[in-house]
Structure formats: C-alpha cells, structure tokens
Amino acid sequence: MTDALSELNKVLAAEHAAVYAYGVVGARSSGDQRATATAGFNAHRARRDQIRGLIAARGGTPSEAGPAYELPFPVTAPREAARLAALVEDRVTAAYLELVAVGDLSLRRLAAQAMQECAVRGYGWQPVIAALPGHPAPAPAPSPAGRATGSPPVSLDQ
C-alpha cells in the first residue's frame, strides 16, 4: 500500500494549485460562469483545508501554497478560463486517484468522493467524458459507415 502522508501531500499541492487557478478563472469570468468559478474555488478551498487538517493529525507538516503558479496557457477570456477550470479538475482528479491506493479506508472514501466531485465540476466546464488518469481513452464513436472516425480499420490478422 501507498504511504498516506505522502499521498495527502500530493493532494494538498494539487488543491493549492486549484485554489490559485480558480482565482484566475473567476477573474476572467462573469455571470453564471463566475458563479460556477466561485463554487469551484470554495469547494477546492474547503478540500484544501480538510487535507491540511488530515496531514497535521497524522503528525505531518502541511505545505503552504506558493505565492503564484505558472498557468499552462494564457487565460485572457472566458473561453480560456473554462478550459483552465476543466484542466484543473482533471489534474486534481489524478492526485486523488493516487490517494485511493492507501490502506486507510477513510482516506480511500474521501479520495473517491473528491474524484467524483472533480469529475462533475470538470464536466460542467467541458462536457466531455475522459478516461480516468492512467487508463486508455475511450474509442471514438463509430461513424455512420460503421467504423471509427479518424482511425484506420482494425485488422485482426497477425
């Protein structure tokens, strides 16, 4: 089994980055999108605080957030803000995926719940169902001709 404190620290780092990113998302949004960004910001802030408490309860020292984080692309408009929010949710989901491998059942439940919340938020930003991190992407839907679009026909010959 995986070391719980190490995995909690990875999750905390992801939550710190998510809180920062959602600040940017909110700043580049308005109306309903800003309300959604605020809800995401608050959800990640609450999880961050919860994870900090779990680390401290296990005798660890929770890391502090960095003063700033490098964004993966410029965010100057609502469309990029939505793209960033979806990416953040994917990355936080990946951090929690590692936490489900720890031996502590309560942490595994917390990680599964957090992954579900991230997936729902991410889908709200970008309604695409992606594979879980570490799993292959789903096959494209068949075209009307009966074969997947954008890929050659599959041969079963060896």
Score class of each variant (00 low, 15 high):
Q116M: 12
A56I: 07
T76S: 15
V92R: 10
D49V: 05
D157M: 08
I129R: 14
T76Q: 14
A148W: 13
G122Q: 08
F41Q: 15
T93E: 13
Q126L: 13
V92I: 04
G40D: 00
L105F: 13
T38E: 13
P136M: 03
P153I: 09
P133G: 13
A56D: 03
R52E: 14
A141F: 10
D32P: 00
A56F: 12
A114E: 06
N9K: 15
P127A: 09
T2Q: 15
A27T: 04
V120T: 14
A43V: 01
Y69G: 06
G103V: 00
L8W: 08
A37W: 05
A95S: 02
D32L: 09
V88W: 02
E98V: 07
D157P: 04
S6V: 15
P136W: 06
M115H: 02
Y96A: 01
P138N: 08
V100S: 05
D157Q: 15
L132N: 09
S106R: 11
L8V: 04
A119D: 05
R121P: 00
G124K: 10
R108E: 05
Q113R: 15
P72M: 01
G23D: 06
E80A: 10
R45T: 11
G31L: 00
L105E: 10
H44Q: 03
Q113Y: 14
V11Q: 13
T149A: 15
A139H: 12
Q158R: 15
A57C: 06
A14W: 09
V19H: 00
R121C: 04
F73L: 06
R79L: 12
H135W: 11
R109H: 12
A65G: 09
L97A: 15
L84S: 03
G23C: 02
P136G: 08
G26T: 04
D104A: 12
R28S: 10
Y22C: 02
L5D: 07
T38Y: 02
P74G: 01
S6R: 14
G134I: 03
P136T: 04
T93I: 01
A81W: 06
R108F: 09
A18I: 00
H16G: 01
A21H: 07
D32K: 15
R147C: 07
A119M: 11
A130E: 13
E15N: 12
I51Y: 06
D104T: 09
S143K: 04
S151P: 02
E70C: 05
A46Y: 03
L84D: 00
Q126F: 10
Y96I: 02
Q116I: 03
L84Y: 04
L54E: 07
G150H: 12
L5S: 14
G59T: 03
A56G: 07
Q50N: 13
A37S: 03
P142S: 08
P72T: 10
V120M: 11
Y96P: 06
A101N: 11
A35G: 02
R45F: 10
S29K: 08
G66Y: 08
I129C: 14
A101S: 12
S6W: 02
G146N: 11
